[in-house]
Design a protein around this nucleic acid. Structure first.
Lengths: 258, 258
DNA sequence: AAACACCGTTCCATATTATGGAACGTACGG
DNA sequence: CCGTACGTTCCATAATATGGAACGGTGTTT
């Protein structure tokens, strides 16, 4: 076959990704219709995946849905990240101090990927999700992560951005984003001023490792009345403190960055 | 080919599961050796998986490891569980009240699968993991989950248990486990008295839904000096209270079971 | 109660794909 | 500088996955 894929694998992954957004599961025929696959093909792939726990049947309706094996594999992958393991208790402490959701993210391509999310006790806001991505140009986390790139790498990354205007305040030019990144680098913290989600502001600070490189970023986010602009320096202070503690834990010695 | 599987899919899943326990990733040749696959086959499958984010290359060494796509899919699956979404804030409250790790689990076959895990701020104990399984016969969660089965279904389940002695206190006969389950049913809470992990005790209580059926269990666990035997009734009280609140949230009306 | 429609499941001839052997380029160690 | 091992690519062909047909079961309609 053409291209880089393997047909059976691509079909199976298509099924998996389809079911990952279908809360109530789907039947064989419906999966086949949505993915333009013969139902006997679908059935065979589902059976194979089910045999290993990646797919399960709904108890009542018989619909197929993702199995909990994905949860297990996802957790195993997350726990391979030493950074996350080391950072968790600092993040919990920050969440309780600030009383707002706290995230840890790493850079993947042109996105920040959430690898930890701590909600304070009273919080029930569920927008972000571990494993999800947010574009670098309109997130505090993303700007911090980009601030760790070398000049050439940064320009290359900026050149690759395809802008989507999420809110009235979304930055949509390379120049604006570059300026924000430089500001993040200078201050030691980055800002999302309702650029990704209207009404939501976010402050992040970078985490470094023993080589001095930026490997992650920590953020606090919340309603613009809670993460109020007039208290940004104060909020940024506690975020930077937490990021510094995690950095230290990862072997970073202040002053060693390039 | 023979059996229920699909060869390409089984090979890809073998690679995925191998990498899920290899923190530093592996090379093509090494994967091939471990799975008895030709390196050109391995390379093709890795490339196909990498193209969709399920595999990534280590920045430095070039080793292959799982991609963060698994984290995303795992989180999407978890978030499809309405129970988990609804329960999270109650569990956080319980963790802070008791100051010990709290879990939520559901029944899958003869295991309790952790679908939520809350560590209090100061805790760094990392034994359990979301997505992991613990056998029903030697866990408080498992005994609570089994207590919701009908008589025939329970006997069938008990007949299927293959006992492993984890500690000196592990129950290893069907009679002992049946007695524990009946005790859990009578009291409204179940106990793991160092049966799975030496020195660790655990108290759990079942969660019901609007049909009155047991759909999950909540637990608190910790060192036997902290979850001390002489205070079990007290600890159980707060666990049952949390389980009752979650049950209520899931539409359960007290008195409607059976 | 019978007929109909649709779904999930199974089987198998064959079309199509995945395989693995050979070869190549690169990087690392001696 | 040379040898070794790894990752990568290509392609003839062996082996597998496909999908068409058929079946049983369930729910709905007449």
């Amino acid at each position: 076959m053409e291209g880089k894929g393997v047909q059976v694998l691509d079909r199976a992954l298509d099924i998996i990704e389809l079911l990952s957004v279908e809360r109530d599961g789907l039947g064989v025929t419906e999966i086949g219709l949505k993915l333009d696959l013969h139902k006997s093909t679908v059935h065979r792939l589902l059976s194979a995946l089910a045999g290993r726990g990646y797919i399960e049947r709904d108890d009542n309706r018989g619909a197929y849905r993702l199995g909990l094996k994905f949860v297990e594999i996802g957790s195993l992958r997350l726990n391979q990240l030493e950074l996350k393991t080391e950072a968790s208790s600092y993040l919990r402490r920050l969440a309780n101090t600030v009383g707002q959701p706290v995230h840890l993210a790493i850079l993947r391509g042109l996105d920040a990927v959430y690898i930890e999310k701590i909600d304070p006790v009273a919080s029930i806001r569920m927008y972000s999700q571990i494993g999800k991505r947010i574009p670098v140009y309109c997130s505090a986390l993303g700007k911090c992560l980009l601030s760790g790139l070398g000049k050439d790498e940064l320009e290359s990354a900026l050149a690759g951005i395809e802008f989507t205007r999420f809110t009235a305040k979304t930055k949509t030019t390379v120049g604006e984003v570059r300026a924000d990144i430089e500001g993040a680098k200078r201050r030691g913290w980055g800002l999302d001023d309702e650029e990704h989600e209207a009404g939501i502001r976010c402050i992040a600070s970078p985490v470094r490792d023993y080589t001095g490189r930026i490997i992650a970023a920590v953020s606090v986010s919340g309603d613009r009345r809670v993460i109020a602009a007039d208290r940004d320096e104060e909020t940024a202070g506690v975020v930077m403190e937490t990021a510094a503690e995690i950095s230290k834990r990862m072997g970073y010695v202040p002053g060693m960055e390039e």
